[in-house]
Design a protein around this nucleic acid. Structure first.
Lengths: 238, 238
DNA sequence: TATTGTAGGACTGTCAACAGTTGACGTGCC
DNA sequence: GGCACGTCAACTGTTGACAGTCCTACAATA
């Protein structure tokens, strides 16, 4: 990994217009620049991206296949609107997949990867918001931890599903809500337990720990949503 | 479910050319009409489908987003070639997801659905190939059973992932190998155990039973593959 | 006032043509 | 004979234009 040969072997990126448009569009969706549920006009988007409608349409089709966009015939495309129900559904899927990933990682992880995780957690532990327990435990950091574990599973399909598709969808929420906050300390402790399970190379324990962690996160979200709803804030539907 | 209102509310399907082409293309891939790994020419395909290249390209992009096709710039599109490793990777993902689905189903299933499952298994049990234990336990029947359980989970995301994406990919193998055969009786018994777990509404037991079932199936596949390889049949890489 | 019919505009769906790239074949030189 | 180079055909990438559809607004009618 990371050797010179990779630089030599790596092909010059012959990125087509469609590829760049896809990336740009995806970024716009994830960042919230294109609001969920909003309709987007092919013509206007094509002009603003500086490309013709053809490549744009093909980029749209690709994201349509990835469920980020939805098209209704003769009407147009809409940015997929995720309800709160969708979020909890998604978290259940994530619990299952990442539990499996953690199980596999327990068997596949090499010492170097374990050390990386250890250092990552050490850094997290010294952060102010984690120590006080009130902060938000920045999602980026959270994703870092999970990302490393998933990658260690060595299951390409699993990695693709979680790191590419799933995290993208979850990221959408980050910009829309503070749903994830207020659990920094607990999350950190759970991360530590997961690491310990991995270090002991116990598949069952590793899976259990990871699933408990994600389940807690989900339950926390549900609780926050109920509070939100009780306070009259009639669910902004994301 | 299944009420009149659905018929009234359901929009008339205004299927675009792209939609029909997508379906046709998908079917061709799943059925093996388009061999895995084979390159497909846009021009020829467009002519054989009787459409222009535009819609065809958009259909390709969609399947590309669903990982059924892969495109390399300026070279062309290839039907995704799944290695045996990919198959086992896929089965691990399926084990995780369907375990979760079965867990949820244990809580959500209504008596009618349980009765349906019961009848389905009763029919299976009377089939010749199941009784002798040597038959193939037709995948269609197997899928029927799993399909019903997954649907009962009431988790739209899970249903989409398993019933649409995952089963499609797995179906590819059906036409290429007899890998799944020779486990009819065992599979049937496992199905019965799953049903019993569901009937007792025990989430943990239900998940465990389903995961064991899929894990056994995976191990069986691995064993068959090893036999195949030992017999000099140097993995046709599907 | 509520409903129906109609015209206009904007947009999507589709197609045909052009430009750029790739891979293969054949030629010439060592 | 083998290797390098140049040419060519086929294909992909992209564009612009045309046809068909839907939505909106407004007018007419009961």
């Amino acid at each position: 990994m990371g050797t010179m040969s990779e630089l030599l072997n790596s092909r010059v990126k012959a990125k087509s217009l469609v590829d760049t448009v896809t990336e740009r569009l995806e970024a716009a969706i994830i960042s919230g620049e294109l609001a969920p549920g909003s309709r987007l006009s092919e013509q206007r988007l094509a002009i603003s991206f500086g490309v013709s409608r053809g490549p744009l349409r093909e980029a749209i089709r690709r994201l349509e296949g990835r469920q980020l966009l939805q098209r209704t015939a003769n009407i147009g495309v809409h940015v997929t609107k995720l309800s709160w129900r969708d979020l909890t559904d998604l978290m259940l899927v994530r619990e299952a997949l990442e539990g499996m990933a953690c199980r596999l990682a327990a068997e596949m992880m090499n010492p170097a990867e374990l050390a990386e995780l250890d250092q990552l957690l050490a850094e997290h532990g010294q952060l102010q918001d984690v120590q006080t327990g009130t902060g938000y435990y920045q999602q980026t950091r959270d994703f870092d931890f999970h990302f490393k574990i998933v990658t260690a599973s060595r299951n390409e399909r699993l990695i693709q599903m979680l790191c590419a598709d799933m995290y993208d969808l979850l990221r959408i929420y980050r910009y829309r809500s503070s749903t994830f906050g207020g659990r920094a300390k607990a999350a950190y402790e759970e991360h530590r337990m997961i690491l310990e399970a991995l270090r002991s190379r116990d598949p069952d324990l590793s899976e259990t720990a990871m699933r408990a962690h994600i389940r807690n996160s989900r339950l926390h979200i549900v609780k926050r949503l109920e509070e939100l709803e009780a306070s009259g804030n009639s669910q902004p539907a994301l």
